[in-house]
Every structure is written in structure tokens, then in C-alpha cells.
């Protein structure tokens, strides 16, 4: 198992966002988290990447229990994510945003960067080359130098995915990557997710509302409602689980 979530509870004052949630994430799988709005899905991702500290429970990553951890350290351990509400760096171009994804991999120290010539410059071009591969893969060559604020929503989502991919993560967390997209854009995004999973072996946790998408690409699904985990299994099982139908599918359809 790449990660195990054990008995995690998270409260905000009186609001119970997560209530004794346990599940695991296998290496190389696509794990979907579904559930109605306010179920605690985004909070779960925030716990996984260290942004929220749960009051109870542990996170085990690569067989080790996570002691305290700052989000920037956890990023350095190979966990990357995208956000439900896009969180790009508005003052920078698409290229620079994606280059930012590689900041955890930069080796040149202060003096080398100050001098620029030699190691720092060479390293910059190595990163640039990797980033250009990602840009080709996501088919965003034409908007490389465009400030991200000027891009339409769908492309911003792609750039954000690119930034997460640039860090060459072991575990990639995607918070509603297809929300607000039309079918064509969704298909593209599905293809990117599947390609990343298959070609790079990246483990992916994906929050998604579209059941069709989930059934198509997820290996296993966690279903949440009111902060609790109500079902966990392969998509075909989940589809026929009565609790899930009541809590989520019944509402959505």
C-alpha cells in the first residue's frame, strides 16, 4: 500500500468534516472519492497533503507513519495536488506556473543561482526540457507564454495539472479536475489522467462527481457522506450498494 488513512477525524469547531475515516491507496491505482457536496472529500485531500492536521487518526505513507508535517515538506515527499477552485499563480505565464512545479527538484543553491552561468543555467534548461514535455503532453504549446489569468477555465485546469505533474509526484491528488467542463474537455482530461497513470505509474486520487467518468477510469472508489466513509470498493460494487444509492446516486439523479 502506498498510503493508509487510519481512523482520521477532523473537526472545525462544531462541524465534523471527517469522522473516523479509514481507507488505503494502492501503488499505481486510480482511486476515486465520491460523495455529495460537503461530504468531506476536499478535507480528506487536505489531510493527505498535510494542509489540515486531523484531531485524530494517522496517515501512513510508504509504510511510515507521518509525524507532524508541513505541507511544503510533504510536497517534497512526492505528493502533488490540484485544487477544486483553481489555485494558479496569476502573475505568471503558463510556462512559469508549470516551472514552479519543479521547485522541489531544484538542486542549485543560492550562490550558483546568483552566478547563473554554469550549473544553475544548465539545471534550468533541464527543468525546462521536462516542462516542455509536459506542455506537449497536455497540448498547451500555444499558450506557453500567456499569463494564466487570461486563459479560459478549461486551460487553467490543464495548466494546474501540468504544474502538479511537473514535480514528478508519486501520489497525485486531483480535486474535481473535470468540474465545469463540457464533454469534450472531460474526455481530454480523462485521457490525460489515464495516460499519466499508465505511462508514469503515478498513483492518483481523484474527486469526481460524474459517475460515468468514475466508472470508466477508477480502479476503486471511496464513497463519503457527512464526513463518514459509507462504502469502499470497485466501481461495479459501489453502483449497486444500497447506502450509496440512497446517499449519493439517488440525490444526483
Amino acid at each position: 500500500m502506498l498510503m493508509e488513512v487510519r481512523g482520521v477525524s477532523l473537526r472545525f469547531g462544531g462541524v465534523v468534516a471527517l469522522d473516523d475515516v479509514s481507507f488505503d491507496i494502492a501503488k499505481g491505482e486510480i482511486r476515486a472519492i465520491i460523495g455529495p457536496n460537503g461530504a468531506g472529500k476536499s478535507s480528506m485531500l487536505n489531510v493527505i497533503n498535510g494542509f489540515y492536521r486531523p484531531q485524530q487518526g494517522d496517515i501512513w505513507y510508504r509504510g511510515q507513519k507521518r509525524e507532524s508535517g508541513k505541507p511544503h515538506k510533504i510536497a517534497g515527499e512526492g505528493i502533488a495536488r490540484t485544487f477544486q477552485n483553481i489555485a494558479l499563480f496569476e502573475g505568471m505565464s503558463a510556462l512559469d506556473n508549470i516551472m514552479c512545479g519543479r521547485l522541489t527538484l531544484v538542486r542549485s543553491g543560492f550562490w550558483k543561482q546568483l552566478l547563473w552561468w554554469g550549473p544553475a543555467e544548465r539545471e534550468e534548461f533541464e527543468h525546462r526540457e521536462r516542462v516542455e514535455h509536459i506542455i506537449d503532453f497536455l497540448e498547451i504549446q500555444a499558450i506557453r507564454k500567456t499569463p494564466v489569468g487570461q486563459l479560459p477555465y478549461g486551460l487553467q485546469k490543464r495548466v494546474e495539472l501540468g504544474r502538479a505533474l511537473a514535480s514528478e509526484p508519486t501520489l497525485l491528488l486531483l480535486d474535481e479536475p473535470m468540474a465545469g467542463m463540457n464533454n469534450e474537455e472531460k474526455e481530454d482530461m480523462c485521457r490525460f489522467v489515464l495516460d499519466v497513470n499508465e505511462e508514469l505509474g503515478t498513483t492518483i486520487v481523484l474527486i469526481e462527481h460524474d459517475m460515468g467518468v468514475v466508472m470508466d477510469i477508477a480502479d476503486r472508489v471511496v464513497v463519503m457522506d457527512h464526513g463518514q466513509l459509507i462504502a469502499d470498493g470497485i466501481p461495479a460494487e459501489i453502483m449497486h450498494n444500497q447506502d450509496v444509492i440512497d446517499a449519493y446516486l439517488g440525490v444526483a439523479h
Binding site: F51, R81, A87, L88, L103, S167
Partner: peptide
């Protein structure tokens, strides 16, 4: 916040 989450 996003900076911190990408590792800054």
C-alpha cells in the same frame, strides 16, 4: 497557500 502546497 498554493506556494506552500507545491513545496515552497
Amino acid at each position: 497557500i498554493a506556494a506552500e502546497i507545491i513545496g515552497v
